[in-house]
Structures are given as structure tokens and as C-alpha cells.
Nucleic acid binder design. Structure first.
Lengths: 198, 198
DNA sequence: CAATTCTTGTAGTGATCGTTACACGTATGT
DNA sequence: ACATACGTGTAACGATCACTACAAGAATTG
């Protein structure tokens, strides 16, 4: 299928994806123009469209790339922690570290890149909203394991607790973008940790 | 100065402002086009520019209008509550009511209308960020009154507590946009209330 | 009525949006 | 070397962006 003839791609796809990630992370889906994207990626529009399909396709590739790199602390924590409460605690504290990084845009790309959009791009925002809600549902599931193992009070509303942790994370993301430091975010995280008894 | 001659304005400024508010609230600053704004306001571009100056000027007028109407529960709570802790509690519970309203866009306009923007509109996003930070600073000040009156533990970090409440409110706003119900938000609020002992 | 003044609707401005047609350059396959 | 295949850069596409020039309409003033 893929022939061996032709000029061959002149740029590294991973590098271009990382460059695009920083642009989308900074300015959001609609706030990132093709002109800025291609400039940051060091390529011209036809190369972008050849390699990634469209701006929207590129964005979702970027989201995957983000989740596999800058945002992978979440997936790692989910995989490594056996206790739901310990997972919540770890997510909150590590988010405080990552969201206020000095060398990258503030906050979480999934949380901030498509909050409000043009009606035509509503489905892009909905896609990220679903990822956020799925993440909270996964947190609730982890807490339900604690409940079934009688590690937390039997009257615990695990979905509500997960939603609370998710809301705290989302608020921490915005405050990181608003200038909060790691220490600021850690103090917020610790309040949440206290609230859930983790 | 303002002559009594001429055609006179044919539309009601408050009504137009309210219509524009709903559009900006739904789609954000950049996600709201002039075409959609003028259509919702029932006027044509020249009337909009004559009455409000520019899209940016209109947006800031909308923010003022929002704070004076849909979002005024905040200012009212600040004015009425004497205890900082009671103020935090009230803000959280009332936000749960307002952010998930069925008849209006979800969340808070100040929190969601300009999260990520084009570089050219960065200052608009910064303006809203400042409003959010100022609000948190005002919450911290109210808590400091509690501290000075020895109503809360003397080792309380009032700025951190205010930042935590602010983060929770911001997270609640996003979850409201993501589909959360009043009940969902109230459960989140109650976790935060527990955390700060209000 | 005529003159003045302000707002309105129509219709456009230049700029930028995401996207692509096309020809050139550069590689491989025979 | 020749033919073929693929990515590349240039330059443009129509659509939409925020915004406005302009003239007609509608009110008050003399």
C-alpha cells in the first residue's frame, strides 16, 4: 500500500506534533490559527494537511499526544494506584506540580483548550467534555473499589467524591493559567485531600 | 451636548445587552461572531457600534451587565454576610443553584467566556483572569476578618482557603457546562464546605 | 414647511480564517 | 537513465471575521 517511491517526508511527525501541542495548549483549539501552527511546526499548510488531515484531526492527534506525554501522569497514577483514595490524593498533588510548570503552558490542555467555541465547533468542545466526564467516571469507579473493599465509609457517595476531585482539578487548571504557583496549587490540593479524608 | 434632535434610538439598550450576554455566555468572547450577536440583539452592526463602541467594548459592558444581574448573587452575598466562613458556604451553595440553571447557559460567564484566546485578544482573557483573582482576594479578605475576630483557627491560611473555594467554584462552573445538575454541583459544594469547616 | 441632527439599513471594506490546486523537487523502481 | 510516485513550496481559493462609508429615514427645531 504505502509505496517506497517519492520524496519522503522531510519533517519529524512527533516533533511537529509536540510543537502543535504547545500552540493548542497556549491558545486553545480556535485560538490557534493555521498560520501560527504551521510556523511553530516548521512546515507549510499542504504538509500539515497531508500528514494530519485537517485542523480538527490535528487537534485530536495533539490531544492523544498530550495524554501520552505531558498529561500521562494521570494514566500512570490510574495504573499504579490500587486504592481509590490514594489515587485521588496522588492525582491532586501531581496535578499541582504539572499544571504550574514554568516551562509549559499552564493548566491542562483537555480542561482548557475548548471551553467556549463557535457553534460550528461545538462537537470539538463536546469531545473534550466527554473526556473530562469519562475521567471523573473512572475516578468514581476506583473509589467504588475502595467502597466494595470496605476501605472507605459505606455511605460514601463515590460519584460525588469523584466529581468533587474533578472540579478541584479543573479549578486548579484555571488558576494555574491565572498565575498560581505550584505552592498555591498544592495548598488547594491539600484542602481537597482533607475533604475526602485521603 | 446630547441634542434632542434626530431619529432617536430604535431599540432598548438593556434588552440588547441581555441578548448579547446570552450569546457571549454560550459561545465565549471569540466564539461569538458579530453576525450572531447582531441577530440575537435584533439590530444591525452600525447600531451596535454606535451604542457600544466595538465588540470588545460590548463584551465588557456585557460583563458588567452580567455581574449586575445573573451573577449578582456573589456581590449580594459579599455585602450581606459578616462571617467569612458563612460567606464561603453561601457562595458555594448558591453557585450550585445558579451555574446549573436550566433556562440559561451553564456556569459563570466570567469563568468561561475567555479561557483560551487568539494572541491578539490576550488582554481580554487577562482582564477576566484579574477579575477572578480579585474575587479570590476579596474572599481571602473576608476570611481574614474571621481570623482577626478569632472565629477560625489562628493558623488558617486564609489566602489558601480562598483559593481553594475559588478553585471549587471554577470547577463547578466547568462541570455545569459539561452537563452537571444542581444536585451534582451541590454535592461538590458540600465537600468543599466540609473541607473548610463552614 | 424647511433645516438640522441623529440613527438606521444596505452594502461593502481589508484582513484573516481553514483549505487546496498546481507545478516543482526529490526520492525510488526498473 | 528513464519513468513513476510522493511530499513540498507558492500562491491562491471562497468564506467569514470585525468593522464602517454612505445615503435614506425619522425625529426635533425654527
Amino acid at each position: 500500500m504505502s509505496g517506497k517511491t517519492g520524496q519522503g517526508r522531510k519533517f519529524n511527525v512527533e516533533d511537529a506534533l509536540e510543537a502543535a501541542t504547545l500552540v493548542f495548549w497556549n491558545h486553545g483549539y480556535e485560538g490557534a490559527s493555521l498560520a501560527e501552527l504551521t510556523h511553530a511546526m516548521g512546515i507549510n499548510p499542504p504538509s500539515l494537511y497531508k500528514a494530519f488531515g485537517s485542523k480538527e484531526d490535528l487537534f485530536f492527534s495533539v490531544v492523544d499526544h498530550y495524554n501520552a506525554t505531558h498529561g500521562n501522569f494521570m494514566a500512570i497514577a490510574f495504573a499504579e494506584e490500587t486504592s481509590g483514595l490514594a489515587l485521588m490524593r496522588r492525582l491532586l498533588l501531581e496535578a499541582a506540580d504539572h499544571y504550574a510548570s514554568a516551562s509549559y503552558p499552564g493548566g491542562c490542555l483537555v480542561i482548557s483548550a475548548a471551553v467556549t467555541v463557535t457553534p460550528a465547533n461545538r462537537h470539538v468542545a463536546d469531545h473534550l467534555a466527554k473526556m473530562r466526564n469519562d475521567n471523573i467516571a473512572a475516578m468514581a469507579e476506583a473509589l467504588t473499589h475502595d467502597l466494595n473493599a470496605r476501605r472507605i465509609p459505606q455511605n460514601t457517595d463515590t460519584k460525588a467524591m469523584a466529581a468533587f476531585v474533578g472540579a478541584t482539578l479543573q479549578g486548579m487548571s484555571q488558576q494555574a493559567r491565572d498565575g498560581a504557583t505550584k505552592e498555591d496549587l498544592t495548598r488547594i490540593a491539600n484542602y481537597a485531600i482533607t475533604a475526602i479524608g485521603a
